[in-house]
Design a binder for these strands. Structure first.
Lengths: 209, 209, 209, 209
DNA sequence: GATGAATGAGCATTCATTCAT
DNA sequence: TATGAATGAATGCTCATTCAT
């Protein structure tokens, strides 16, 4: 019988469907990152959002849709900083910038991986995530950001004209994925610097021997 | 009606504990790959194995142990062929061999990724997988296999003396991980050839420009 | 079909949480007294209450809590009449009143004993019962009621000044326990009158020989 | 396929059905007293007896029969010492002897009560226990032992001729039951001496005021 | 006889979803 | 429109019992 949204919700939203939806998604992200995706039951999300369980269904049609949307939204937020990477062109050294990317992308992946892993483990959820990604496009494409950065450096003359920027970008992102994968698999906190690989790539980019 | 294993099980095993255990693990892998790890309930596994639910517990002490063992065992089987990769040293061309590796490792990863992802999504299961991996050591380490291959090529003179074989191996494996990740995330069947990246790596290996 | 309580439940409650809780507790008592505490599974209780199994958990957090509460509540109800016993002081004869107590307490114990026995047999349940008893205090203490009655009789002059009322009360309650125990152990319906023991006690109380 | 009983069993029995049965009952008693009746699964009993689970069914037709028999046997053993009580007639003082009885019977009841409680909680088991008791008759009847003791004292002149020995015996046993009951219900280790009640009884026995 | 694996009903509990209020 | 109680299927796991060997 109680009609208005609880005060605690109105305190952080204007009560509009969009904002309430966003509020619920934030709650879902909170729960998922704190306790894991499997702990993100509708009850837990509703509690975190300070809403009744039934209310969720006024904003999302199933738990799957809600969780998928939360995963994608969180991924977008976490990778947002990557969009700024091309702006580093011309600053520091190329090697140091690539190193920086590996470190930052690594941190971002650490936060995303558990959520995407949960999606990979559940075909229905994975489908929902895919649908959601299509709607949310363009996703932050890390390889594209790196390529953009390298092309800028090429224009600045800090990278050889013939360098295959796309290939180097792909490789760099691959390294990040590998690192995150290994870290999770072996419960390691070590964050490899990838010095040697970056050196190899820089040589390739600059044409030095 | 308690005693003999059902005919359907005896048809594919000799009834020995080892084979029954393997049969159950196969059933678990079947279910997990077909329906996702989250659908691999004890009931579903028992049904797939054509066994009663209680019987599972004569062979495994918890569902977690059973699933973890199935994941690790499947991973070992799928990556077994990688151990043979170093033997390609001296055959074909280095580029073609690396290409071959990317393709084969990609196929293997496609089969493993969903299972490992499920482990990543469930802390308890991940722990069990780690324990299981320790028992099953040595795991097939793809980067080590590639490095071994490259070192052999260097001995054969097909790779420059100064080439950083370890770094190239790391990069190659990173590419594979990235490919598999992208493929799963986007439900793609495309298998990128990674021609350009391999070219870059070969140049680095041979010291050509 | 999720929402309203079934008609059969609304027929005996007003639908308020307190009454539904009481209804569930009654169902639990029914099952326990009819089939034994070991048969009081959540399913059986839910069925007796004409509710879905999950609904129980909206009113009690575990089966143990539910069963313990049912046991204590039932015990309180059954022993409620004992609180009125002291009011008999001055009426009838002391012997007849003690006889009356033995009979009434015996009937009450017959209904309680199997439930308390079940608690004795299950450490976890026993703990829960103890906790519940603390909350429900003051429990009806039969010995205290008898002592209170005897002290009143002493004030009225129907019991000798030097009589040890506490000791007599203890003894009387002990007789009741013994009777109930024997009755249950031997599936007997016989209700011993305890004439001779009461005579002995009355002599002690009145100082007659 | 293994035919003979395991060595560990043959080490403590002669392999005859009676002794094997007794061995199994001992194992059951061990488990029940150590872990509680609810932990006395057939598996646990078989393990304690160092026998295969199926073997139990060559000696007992159901778990219920086995457990009931173990309970009754244990009760007989524990109360065996009571048979010796009448021999105390003429020694010490009557009061002290009654005190001794209360203490000893209390200890015995503490060991029996959890087992009988479990039986009271489960109608099927209780029936089995009753059947078993009929077969095992005569049970050690504590009240009868006390009465026998008191009659002997009467013959010795330490108890008045007119004393109602039967009634006093009943009362004393009732006190023991009550004590055990209270102890279990309140998780108490206190063992009340029952000084005042015994004094009352002794006065009744000796005709003193 | 002794074995121990197979059985499947049974257990307490959780959960996404619904819908009368 | 928000609520929160009702639902009942599903979960991992245990257990007494059977019976081919």
């Amino acid at each position: 019988m109680p009609r208005p949204l609880p005060d605690s919700v109105l305190a952080v939203t204007d009560g509009s469907p969009e904002q309430v939806r966003a509020h619920i998604l934030s709650a879902a992200v909170q729960v998922m990152t704190r306790k894991g995706v499997s702990a993100a039951s509708t009850r837990a999300i509703a509690e975190e959002a300070a809403l009744s369980g039934g209310t969720l269904y006024n904003y999302f049609s199933t738990r799957e849709e809600l969780v998928a949307r939360a995963i994608v939204r969180h991924s977008l937020e976490v990778t947002a900083s990557i969009a700024a990477f091309p702006a580093r062109a011309g600053t520091h050294t190329v090697a140091r910038n690539l190193q920086f990317f590996v470190t930052e992308a690594g941190k971002a992946l650490d936060r995303i991986l558990p959520l995407l892993a949960a999606a990979f483990a559940d075909p229905g959820l994975l489908d929902a995530v895919r649908r959601e990604m299509l709607d949310s496009f363009p996703l932050n494409d890390p390889a594209a950001a790196v390529e953009k950065y390298l092309l800028a450096e090429r224009r600045l003359g800090r990278v050889a004209t013939g360098a295959d920027c796309r290939a180097v970008a792909s490789i760099l992102v691959g390294l990040c994925h590998d690192d995150a994968f290994q870290r999770h698999l072996h419960a390691s906190d070590e964050r490899p610097t990838r010095h040697k690989e970056i050196t190899l790539l820089v040589r390739s980019l600059t044409g030095t021997r």
